[in-house]
Simulated assay, not measured.
Amino acid sequence: MGRQSISFTEPNDNWLKSQVDNKEYASKSELVNDLIRQARKQQIQIDWIKSRLDKAENSGFTSDSKSQILAQSKSLLNG
């Protein structure tokens, strides 16, 4: 496992500390690794949505632009 040294802003460092203090995570490293795993999963989902948008846009099935479809998808996911 690679070892890194990173700096956090004070609010972010305080939040990380609070998560560890609340026993949500055993360490800041565990928390940061979990956040990275979540971001990687999210990126996979984003890439899948983008590929579906490209396919739909190129099929001529809709007259909506990619940005319109993406905005609709985001509102459905967040709604």
Rank of each mutant, 00 (worst) to 15 (best):
R37A: 11
S5G: 03
R37N: 10
P11R: 01
F61T: 13
M1D: 01
A71P: 02
S5V: 13
L35C: 14
N14R: 13
N14F: 06
S51Q: 13
D47H: 07
D13F: 09
K55M: 00
N33Q: 15
L31A: 15
L53C: 00
S29H: 06
S29P: 01
S5E: 13
A71V: 10
I6R: 03
K17D: 07
A39S: 08
K74T: 08
R37V: 09
S51E: 10
K17M: 07
W48L: 05
F8R: 10
S63H: 13
E10D: 11
W15D: 01
R52P: 04
T9W: 05
A26Q: 14
S29D: 08
G60Q: 09
Q4G: 00
Q4S: 12
S7C: 07
S27V: 07
W15Y: 12
K41E: 06
M1C: 04
G2V: 15
F8D: 07
S73D: 06
N14T: 13
Q4K: 14
F8T: 03
W48T: 00
S63A: 13
I49Q: 08
D47E: 04
G79H: 04
W15I: 04
S29L: 00
K66A: 13
V32Q: 05
N33I: 15
I36G: 07
L77R: 05
N22T: 11
E24V: 14
E30H: 09
R37Y: 11
Q45G: 08
E24L: 05
Y25D: 01
A56V: 12
N22V: 06
T9C: 00
S63G: 06
L16T: 11
A39F: 08
E57I: 03
S27I: 03
I49K: 02
Q38T: 13
D13P: 06
S29M: 03
Q42L: 09
K41Y: 00
S59C: 11
S18K: 12
L70S: 13
A26F: 09
T9N: 04
Q42P: 03
E10R: 12
S29C: 03
D64Q: 15
W15C: 01
D34M: 12
S51T: 04
D54I: 09
Q19W: 03
D64T: 14
A39C: 05
K41M: 00
N22H: 14
W48V: 02
D54A: 04
I36H: 11
M1Y: 10
G2T: 14
S75E: 01
E30Y: 04
R37H: 09
G79S: 08
I6P: 10
S65L: 14
K17E: 10
N58Y: 05
L76F: 04
R40T: 10
L53D: 00
R3L: 09
I49C: 02
W15P: 08
T9P: 00
I46A: 03
S65F: 12
K55A: 08
K17A: 05
Q4T: 03
S63E: 09
K28C: 08
L31F: 12
E10H: 09
K50L: 05
K66E: 12
T62C: 06
G79F: 01
D21P: 09
S18C: 06
S59H: 09
V20Y: 01
S59N: 02
S5K: 11
L77A: 09
L53F: 06
S27R: 09
G79M: 07
K55S: 08
L35K: 11
S67D: 15
L70I: 12
D54G: 00
S67I: 15
W48S: 01
G60R: 02
N12D: 11
